[in-house]
Design a protein around this nucleic acid. Structure first.
Length: 563
DNA sequence: GGCTACAGCCAC
DNA sequence: AAACGTGGCTGTAGCC
């Protein structure tokens, strides 16, 4: 059963040909049951209103997200000319999510200029997508990718709906401990002011020196003969001068103040919850992006403020060495998969397994070597161990090298489930053709090489990062289904809104890590389901190939204590 | 005052 | 370990 939500000009919708007033949609969805795959233009547009009415959707098909994947996929043949101009399904941005205390336009009557009737036709689009998938020799993989992407879109809206539990007073305590009490508007916190004085003293600089001004600061460093050419942390660390220590501390505290200080707290935390909008598929590789509050860069120092509601706790899980394991499976590399299983058959540390294989002497070298292989690093010890890794794991290394060469030739590459990379742009092609002009100089040739190599590093990483993102989507899809199946617990709802008020639910996701907020009594069951979901994701992508995806799982009422 | 570019740092 | 992949976000600086 695949009901399609079709907006009407009068502000109602049609579902399977039947007119449904917007206010009736939640009850229509609820009565359709879990077998229905709700199909609509944009999950962000319809799902918040359903959740606000307490209605969860089990399965969906997000036409906008699916279109973007299919349009670019090398595993699918989209009808029409390849250079057809982008249509509405290509250019439509996701509908913005709205905080619960702001007027929700989602189910409001449409305005004259933005009525849903002006949007493209969901029924026609679904028919095209179904035909494109059915005609693909890799239909199974594409179906899995589209289902996982759509499930991810549901999970992203659910996480926004529930919010990440956040204690503002703990956050304030962290800031006060490290920076001093909150200063008046326009003033520096006490600790920063102290450090500014120390910096001026060490540089013999006047009181007018403002460490927040890169120009001022760099000039003062040069005048004092410190030998700094930039203000980068890792370059300052190499210098031997009394200003370095207070300056590094200043920069670190200044960053905390500006990025996650009191202003951040006031802007992004409401009623005990931090809500950031996840942008599903917002990164070219298929990773999620986020918008507002920087959810994907929450510094470790403020995670103490992430505290479960009374009677609730967190299950925090992250996939150990996800990307090299994904690479081993994509490349069909039995040797690397074996290293991932470790000597005891259930290795939780793939880098230790690589050491045990004899390829490299230390875990650190195994790690930097694999990162170098996946990022395209060539220098330093990363570059030095690559030949040894290539000898022990020829399949994996050849796989990423081939992806890099395709990029250098200006070709697209594709993830395991079928998300393809974009083509390089006009500047790239101009640089390449510039190297073949009659009057091309060494500079032109070098520029073309540099551009080609850079795009090769992108495509090299794309196949691994993109496939890891697919594993994570399958993991999330499985987790949210399994959590719902656990059912409600006897616990106070606290701040948790329906339909999750007594149920474990996802509240945070960063690429290879999830946080579940759960009634404390269900924590062990949740941990088991999260583990089972990881194994299921591995099977969905790679079938019987013997690659393992071990997790580190912790149960704790504070995010900071779970790491 | 708005806009863009850039440097820098946080996360994975 | 080195500065090599993907991003968001903040501030300064310089432009209109």
């Amino acid at each position: 059963m695949q009901p399609v939500v079709v907006p009407s000009p009068d502000g109602s919708v049609r579902v399977d040909g039947r007119r449904v007033a917007l206010g009736e949609l939640p009850s229509v969805v609820a009565s359709a049951g879990a077998a229905a795959r709700w199909t609509w233009d944009d999950t962000n547009r319809w799902y918040p209103g359903l959740l606000a009415a307490g209605v969860r959707v089990d399965r969906s098909h997000d036409l906008r997200l699916a279109h973007r994947i299919l349009r670019g996929s090398a595993l699918a043949a989209w009808p029409g000319p390849a250079d057809a101009p982008p249509g509405p399904w290509d250019t439509l941005p996701p509908a913005p999510l709205t905080p619960a205390d702001e007027p929700a336009m989602l189910f409001a009557a449409p305005g004259p200029s933005s009525g849903p009737a002006e949007g493209p036709d969901p029924l026609a689009e679904l028919a095209v997508q179904d035909a494109v998938v059915a005609a693909s020799p890799s239909a199974g993989r594409l179906r899995l990718l589209l289902a996982a992407e759509s499930a991810g879109a549901l999970a992203a809206v659910e996480m926004y709906h529930a919010g990440l539990p956040w204690l503002a007073d703990v956050h304030d305590a962290v800031l006060t401990e490290t920076l001093g009490p909150r200063p008046r508007l326009g003033e520096r916190p006490a600790r920063l002011e102290e450090l500014a004085q120390l910096i001026r003293g060490a540089l013999d600089a006047p009181a007018s020196l403002n460490p927040d001004s890169p120009q001022d600061l760099l000039r003062a460093l040069q005048r004092a003969g410190v030998g700094a050419r930039t203000l980068r942390k890792w370059e300052l660390e190499k210098l031997d001068h009394p200003v370095v220590e207070p300056l590094l501390e200043y920069k670190s505290l200044y960053r905390l103040l500006t990025a996650n200080g009191w202003a951040w707290l006031e802007a992004w935390v409401r009623e005990g919850r931090f809500r950031s909008e996840y942008v599903v598929g917002g990164v070219v590789t298929g990773r999620w992006a986020s918008s507002g509050g920087g959810a994907l860069q929450l510094p470790k120092s403020v995670r103490r403020a992430v505290v479960a509601d009374p009677g609730w706790t967190f299950v925090v899980a992250d996939a150990a060495q996800l990307e090299p394991r994904v690479l081993a499976a994509m490349a069909g590399d039995d040797a690397m998969a074996a290293a991932g299983r470790g000597p005891d058959g259930r290795g939780a540390d793939m880098y230790a397994g690589i050491v045990a294989s004899g390829a490299v002497p230390t875990r650190e070298l195994a790690k930097v070597g694999m990162l170098g292989a996946m990022y395209g690093g060539t220098t330093g010890s990363s570059g030095q161990v690559l030949p040894r890794l290539a000898k022990t794991f020829p399949r994996s290394l050849a796989f990423v090298d081939e992806a890099a060469r395709a990029g250098e030739r200006g070709e697209i590459v594709t993830t395991h489930l079928g998300r393809s990379s974009p083509l390089p742009g006009a500047t790239w092609h101009e640089a390449q053709s510039g190297a073949y002009q009659d009057d091309a100089g060494d500079d032109d040739v070098a520029r073309a090489r540099s551009y080609a190599r850079s795009w090769g590093r992108f495509t090299r990483n794309f196949v691994v990062q993109g496939t890891a993102a697919e594993w994570a989507l399958c993991w999330i899809a499985s987790i949210r289904r399994r959590l719902w199946a656990l059912g409600p617990a006897d616990v106070s709802a606290g701040l948790v809104p329906p339909p999750f008020d007594a149920r474990p639910h996802l509240v945070f996701f960063v690429h290879d890590e999830i946080v579940v907020h759960t009634p404390a009594a269900l924590a062990d069951a949740v941990a088991a389901e999260v583990q089972a979901a990881a194994a299921e994701a591995g099977r969905l992508l790679f079938g019987d190939f013997p690659v393992q995806f071990p997790l580190s799982v912790a149960v704790a009422p504070s995010y900071a204590d779970a790491k």
